[in-house]
Design a protein around this nucleic acid. Structure first.
Lengths: 339, 339
DNA sequence: ATAGTAAACCAAAACGTTTTGGATGTCAAG
DNA sequence: CTTGACATCCAAAACGTTTTGGTTTACTAT
């Protein structure tokens, strides 16, 4: 490995001068600078990042811990979010330290290790939970972070979030305007803050139309297509089956559609199904999915940008961005069939 | 921030002794060790990782650069691969430095920076390309890496791969045994090595049954559901439409199914569709997808494990693992309909 | 008493960089 | 000839660890 000292010896200058020449300081003569740059290039010098980080006390690295609920987790939503964060980070010159931990003790230990160990400059916390231990930890330690999702623990801290309440309200309006009365929904885990926003939005929206969901028709899924399929099947087997099923994400909606089609039902006619997220697949499913579009890629990019901005300002202001989702009506919903 | 020197002062020992006590060396008296450990705990000491890395000259970090072809990339396959890699890395005490770059110059510069900068101990290279500049670079620099996928450039270097040739052969046999004669396929980009394995497997398998695909029925997709939908539509509009369409991944197969259903065709009866990968969604699509199962999660874990093993041995042997995929027959395929 | 051994400890070097706080030499202005 | 300004350079400290190569002390065996 070529080090600064090797270059210094070769050009007969001090390591100070070499360092300064390479870093664009003014107190190096043009000839020396050129000589040093050429020599560095010729010798194939690349600075040792670790040494730089230690000295600069800035890692130019963002921490991202993916909560893997089941070990095998397969979700297009995440790859898109990651692409949004990753591309923006690359653009801003930051690296991403990614790890996967199931929520719990280990996860918290990892946050502690990374934050105290000077390994990352800040975190992006995703999928916020109602009483989020991660956020509690970071707020206590005054460690920089931006969350994707709001948190009850500290409403002040910076976040980017979609307005799930509004999104589900749009779904409710859409379904009620189509004449649906017997509506069921498949929620996500109540630990997630977004679950509450979406559920309240749905209920509020229906209430406006004078409708309500009976408690037995609110089932809790786990955001996988499998759980959508299973819970959808259960709903469809009921003697009085719902005319519309609102799933809390697109993946579960796909599962519900399969369950319906397996029973010979035509989705969009015999039964309406809605999703949430607006992943690209929904456009090409059969039938195309009525859903609420949440710009996941953009959210990733914005979250990352907000964090970097906070890291680079000395008196970072808290920012709160609530994105307005929009309803995308496709063919998986239609007028309520009588009976 | 609490540093070793702070602890040393408090307990009246040298920093050497504190360091050695915390790292479990034998030449520290039991009482001193306990005192130091307690004090460290009490003061909330966490070692500065960067300083450790600089000294140990090992980063305990694996580099992973996701090639993002389109900025917005949404693929359940990747999140599962990442989970496999990430969980195994966590288990083995490694971190993951993840970045996203579109293939090209920038991507290569990033590989250079990370490898020469001592930022990572090794790389996991995914989605190998026919003449893979990344592999060329790493081999030239003798930098440790394990690839997911083979590479023509250096067949010797370590890899984990699925036997795409065999996998597609299984598809070919399955389709021919169902009596299909007019078969089309939607491939992936020819830059990927796996595309060639799969295509050759398909053609070889069909040849065994005395069948072939006319060149016009081999279309190139980009692995997204959208492209499956569009190319599928094109194939289905032909006057002589194929009775079976083999897509080179599951996502494109879903797109083909939508295109077929949109035209009132019953998938599995009027037309057979196959995928490749075996993502969980295929089990709950409508109809469930006949595909080749590739244990993506396991592949991620194995790749990671192989790399760590190589990093920890001083004379790492090259390893080559070719996983045998298995055919999963579901309802998206059926006997060829006459005509 | 003396040599040898083991236990407990530690000063200093090392990792590779950036930054601090000058030092040196040249030249123009007074 | 002196002073100040400026351009160019650099020794040493600093970042926070781990490791090297010891030293000191107490005890055991001769």
């Amino acid at each position: 490995m070529v080090r600064i000292v090797d270059i210094a010896k070769r050009v007969n200058r001090s390591i100070t001068t070499v360092s300064r020449a390479l870093n664009g300081y003014e107190d190096v003569s043009p000839e020396t600078r050129q000589l040093i740059i050429d020599t560095a290039e010729e010798m194939g010098y690349t600075p040792n990042s670790i040494a730089q980080l230690l000295q600069r006390k800035q890692t130019m690295t963002i921490g991202l811990v993916l909560p893997t609920f089941s070990p095998r987790f397969s979700d297009p939503y995440f790859s898109e979010l990651l692409a949004g964060i990753g591309n923006k980070a690359a653009e801003l010159g930051y690296d991403l330290l990614v790890s996967t931990r199931p929520p719990g003790e280990e996860e918290m230990d990892y946050y502690k290790k990374l934050s105290a160990g000077g390994r990352v400059d800040g975190f992006i916390v995703i999928r916020t939970r109602t009483n989020d231990a991660r956020i509690r930890l970071l707020v206590d330690r005054k460690f920089p972070f931006v969350a994707f999702g709001r948190s009850a623990y500290d409403p002040e801290s910076s976040f980017v979030d979609e307005d799930g309440h509004l999104g589900m309200q749009l779904i409710a309006e859409h379904l009620s305007s189509l004449g649906h009365k017997r509506i069921a929904c498949i929620t996500s885990n109540r630990d997630f803050t977004f679950t509450h926003h979406r559920l309240n939005g749905l209920l509020d929206g229906l209430a406006k139309a004078g409708l309500e969901i009976e408690p037995g028709s609110i089932l809790e899924g786990d955001l996988t297509q499998k759980s959508g399929y299973e819970l959808g099947s259960e709903l469809l087997e009921r003697k009085q089956r719902p005319t519309a099923i609102a799933a809390f994400n697109d993946l579960m909606a796909f599962g519900v559609m399969s369950a319906a089609q397996e029973r010979g039902l035509s989705v969009g006619k015999d039964i309406s199904v809605t999703g949430f997220d607006g992943i690209p697949m929904g456009e090409y499913s059969h039938p195309p999915l009525t859903t609420v579009s949440q710009p996941i890629y953009k959210i990733g990019a914005m979250t990352c940008e907000m964090l970097v901005k906070a890291l680079q300002s000395d008196s970072p202001a808290k920012e709160h961005i609530l994105l307005q989702p929009s309803l995308i009506v496709r063919q998986s919903t239609g007028a309520a069939s009588p009976g």
